[in-house]
Design a protein around this nucleic acid. Structure first.
Lengths: 347, 347
DNA sequence: TTGAAAGCGCTACCAG
DNA sequence: CTGGTAGCGCTTTCAA
């Protein structure tokens, strides 16, 4: 009766550890460690042999063990308000590509509110030992959080806001907004609504007021009064904006144009106009910010910012900072893209 | 001359370790470990004291150390072809919410090609010790990869495809596609183009052929011949589709309708129609799949699938599988949404 | 209910 | 250039 050795190849049976590799290659674990990580002081022949054995045994260093022993995690945490959003997903995509290419793992967290934000900050602080650094996208930090992060030695790059002490990638939001409003003014609009975002202290608390500044500035430059009754606020989604702007549009004293702080909001405004039977741009001009993938199709005039680029730049800055690079602030340019959603009033 | 003790609070100086907590609380590290993790066999009073000290010292267990000692990583890896895409970002969002709520970390990887796929599989296999499980979204596995994953004991849930051996969340793609084409047929269309996706073996290699089946099936059911000259292929983006369909639309023998495998492709078809001066739906009807956020605004008729739900369900299945749950297959329903991009030919 | 101690798998220092 | 070995910070028997 033949004894059938069950289980597959006995050589590759369990997960190979560094010791197994050392044994088979006939060297010490120390040498294996050096050889595999490409450190100097390993004879070429030795390294080759070790690498061959490691490959054969399908050896992979246990990340937890490496991290524990070496101190570095080769992981970076990325926090965004909502990863399912057009804007944030583009940025995450840009970051991911850079990090993956550099061999870093990317830990993704959604940060929908202040509680999540402080948890993120706490867990990803150096003391948390979860990552080597983190990237925060449009998540506003309180002054005390900034101070704490700095004194903790938190490596952090910020997208959207500029904090001294951390590298950042931002756009010139005052200019972006005033560019849009200037355009509407130059078309002859005098009653220009603002579709803004909430300015609570939880997230996005910096971008909206700045874009609003641009809106005000453009009015001032044109010698126009702003009508506070034309200001609306909604989350940065099409649906929220659609609902929020309805009362102001469904009104004889409605604006002749609306500047929306994001294209997705602008889409919502266009939808509301459709709902009310208003023609765009005949009855209502609409301008947004972003140059969303679908903006061309719907003919939305917008102020473009290179969103994916925002992400890749953030990834690069982070990598540089990890390599001991200096704090760098980058401001990416914006550009007005003219399409069919804006025209002189009453056209 | 007063000696100024430099450095902040001496008590909280360095990062507190479990030993510090034990010392201050007057218990052993073993007890601290139990107390903090909520394990039984700790006196209520003791636990309370330990927790208080831990909070005061801002103690956090080092994840790497815990992982090494306990074996579990509390991390799950998620692989998608391109995280910057509408469809995948929605799914990742759905997954993220579930995982975050359950206290799991989410490692995000883009898997644009076969090389990345095999690297992902290798690193996130149980032997990689990087995560406890993984989720693959629309990343097609070769039969040998499936077999290997199973025999490795890889915990994996699949979104988009159904493999025996792993939990999965899918949609009925044949029905989705045939529903769309049936609709066009019932409007009177006889020449219906197909905007499909590439069927290489790298990614998306299962969904496109299945949707194509639905397209063929609907033709057959209606007794219609399919014209191979009306088949187009492009990546699932608006731009790619716009370019790819141009030659077929810019032709006297053009189709009267196009079924696109995704809404983003449908957007591209609509853009191409615009480019060529074709009216939608008058000269060309267009139907997509997904019900993208912007589909309502552009009036796109589409077959809706609950994309975020796909993600949340995947997250739930994964969590259950981690808790020893069984393999489960879920198929989510689809629904035809009628809008203005489809109408009888020549309307 | 609590504590002592043996690892978890690797890296890094120091000798040789 | 290579090997021995002491940790990294926590979890988990096993005894007490």
């Amino acid at each position: 009766m033949p004894v059938d050795e069950s289980g597959p190849e006995p050589t590759l049976r369990a997960r190979a550890g560094i010791e197994d590799v050392a044994l088979v290659a006939g060297v010490s674990v120390a040498t294996v460690s050096r050889a595999i990580r490409g450190l100097p002081n390993v004879a070429a022949a030795t390294r080759e042999r070790v690498l061959a054995v490691a490959a054969e045994l399908r050896y992979q260093a246990d990340p937890a063990a490496s991290r524990l022993a070496a101190g570095s995690t080769r992981t970076v945490a990325v926090g965004v308000p909502d990863p399912a959003t057009w804007f944030f997903s583009k940025i995450v995509g840009g970051i991911e590509r850079k990090l993956q290419a550099a061999g870093y793992d990317l830990l993704l967290s959604g940060i929908p509110d202040a509680e999540h934000r402080s948890r993120f900050l706490y867990m990803n602080a150096p003391g948390g030992r979860r990552c080597d650094a983190s990237i925060l996208v449009d998540v506003a930090l309180l002054p005390e959080e900034v101070g704490e992060a700095i004194s903790d030695g938190h490596r952090l790059v910020s997208v959207g806001f500029r904090y001294e002490g951390f590298s950042s990638v931002t756009t010139d939001n005052v200019t972006a907004a005033s560019r849009a409003v200037d355009h509407l003014v130059s078309l002859g609009h005098r009653r220009i609504g603002l579709m803004g975002m909430p300015m609570d202290n939880v997230m996005n608390s910096v971008v909206p007021p700045i874009r609003r500044q641009g809106y005000l500035k453009a009015h001032e430059a044109a010698g126009l009064d702003v009508d506070p009754g034309l200001e609306m606020v909604a989350a940065s989604t099409s649906d929220a904006a659609r609902v929020a702007c309805r009362p102001i549009l469904d009104n004889s004293k409605r604006p002749t144009a609306v500047f929306a702080m994001s294209d997705e909001q602008a889409f919502g405004v266009m939808l509301a106009a459709q709902d009310l039977g208003l023609r765009v741009p005949g009855d209502l001009s609409v301008v947004g910010v972003d140059d969303h993938d679908q903006s061309e199709l719907v003919g939305l005039t917008t102020v473009r910012q290179g969103v994916v680029e925002l992400g890749s730049l953030a990834g690069e800055l982070l990598l540089e900072s990890l390599n001991g690079g200096p704090v760098i602030h980058i401001e990416v340019p914006t550009e007005l893209i003219l399409r069919s959603s804006s025209a002189p009033p009453g056209t």
